[in-house]
Computed example of a mutant assay.
Amino acid sequence: MTGERISDRVPDFARRLLAWFDEHGRHDLPWQHPRTAYRVWVAEVMLQQTRVATVIPYFEAFMAAFPDVTSLADADQAAVLERWAGLGYYARARNLHAAARVIRDQYGGRFPREPEQLAALPGIGPSTANAIAAQAFDRPAAILDGNVKRVLARLYAVEGWPNATATARQLWQLAEAHTPDYRAADYTQAIMDLGATLCTRARPACDDCPFAGDCHARAEGRTAELPHGRPRTGREQRRRRETTMLLIRDGAGRVLLTRRPPTGIWGGLWSLPEAEPGAEEEAARALGLTVRPEPPWEPLEHAFSHFDLTINPVPARLQESAGLNSPAGGVMDGEEGIWYNVATMERPGVPAPVATLLARIETDNEVET
């Protein structure tokens, strides 16, 4: 990529992109009405590694529960995680909650306007900070999310994995060079929309793109190749993990849920007790329970970003209990576990595969009754 290749296109890029956006862009996303700093921030965090269609119902439910940054900051983390359950990447929710408390305590509940201040908040990187500054405050600030990386990498045939240091630096230079000093909010949305709706990862709609005649990847027949994927070594393979989950039911058909540790996978969510294979009864005794394991269910596969998890569900019937974990009153200590009635209680925040298993429990209970 030469300097001439950039300079030939920069002056016209924003004008053409905004003209396309005015006619074809997305103007009815829920965080655009109203487009406040708080709503933009929550949406930007939710959209990290998650598609718009998936985010919209979560965003609307989250706004109903926490309509402003102060209500979010004042909430318990457990309540925040429950509204996030099923969206994945739960560190995002924990960081969102932590950042809300910083804004409440250090900024008096008013959002900082400078990208540098925004980027200092938990869970907000440079691109997200710039997106908030641009969309909420109309500040000219370049963004470089996955969609923008793809657009620029194809337009200029940028070599290398976009997250590699040298390639990312090159893409940041391009992003900054193309960002206009006017209509910052619209431009930011426009370049994300271009990547999300036309310059997609698979089967891009090049014939509809306003930059089809300028795109080096298209001219060279490399749209499927660019941007490059993460380099893999010959020995590298996706990691796999395996766990056994206990579905312990009491005489009333309630299922035991325990709280996950505050950090790590599914941090802070409710889940099913886990055990080593063949040690299900020992794991139950550690909770103060005596159970009778039943035949295991078929394994359940769940994919994370960096590994695959195989869950081996083992149903078990409660025989007796003692101490803190006695279900006599219907609940355990609220910080550690609950006996969850799948038919009558609102489901707490649980990971997606646990929700799948609970749904099967509900079906089994209906059959038994």
Rank of each mutant, 00 (worst) to 15 (best):
A99D: 01
A219E: 02
G108A: 11
F62R: 07
G123Y: 04
D181A: 03
Y89M: 05
N365R: 14
G330I: 10
I248G: 01
G349Q: 04
R183P: 00
M332Y: 12
G123T: 09
W84R: 08
L152E: 00
T369P: 07
E159H: 06
Q170K: 06
E346V: 13
I265L: 15
A79H: 09
V10W: 05
P299K: 08
E236Q: 13
I6H: 03
H228Q: 11
Q77E: 15
E116C: 05
H97K: 04
V55K: 00
D105T: 07
D207K: 07
A75E: 10
H27P: 11
A99F: 05
Q237S: 15
A73L: 15
L29K: 07
P140S: 05
G108H: 09
I265E: 14
E368M: 15
E176C: 02
G329D: 05
G146Y: 00
L18R: 00
T263F: 09
F21C: 08
Q32M: 06
Q189W: 14
V45A: 10
A279N: 06
A53S: 14
L47H: 06
E114D: 11
R317M: 11
A73I: 15
G195K: 04
M332T: 12
L72M: 13
T310P: 01
D214C: 06
T244P: 01
A303V: 14
L87Q: 09
S71D: 14
L257N: 05
A303C: 14
A343Y: 06
I248T: 03
T290Y: 02
R238S: 11
P210K: 02
H302F: 15
V102Q: 06
A328Q: 06
V354I: 13
T223I: 10
Q32I: 00
G146P: 02
P180I: 02
L118M: 15
G213M: 13
P115W: 01
V367K: 11
A75I: 07
V255P: 00
F111M: 14
A322C: 04
A177E: 00
P112Q: 03
T36H: 11
L194A: 03
L287N: 03
R238F: 12
F59C: 09
A212I: 04
A119M: 12
P351I: 11
E44V: 11
G267C: 12
D28S: 09
A283M: 01
A19P: 01
R218Q: 08
F21M: 09
L152S: 04
G323M: 06
R5V: 07
A202R: 10
P327E: 09
V151F: 03
A37G: 10
A64L: 15
G330L: 09
G88W: 04
M1I: 07
P315Y: 10
G125R: 08
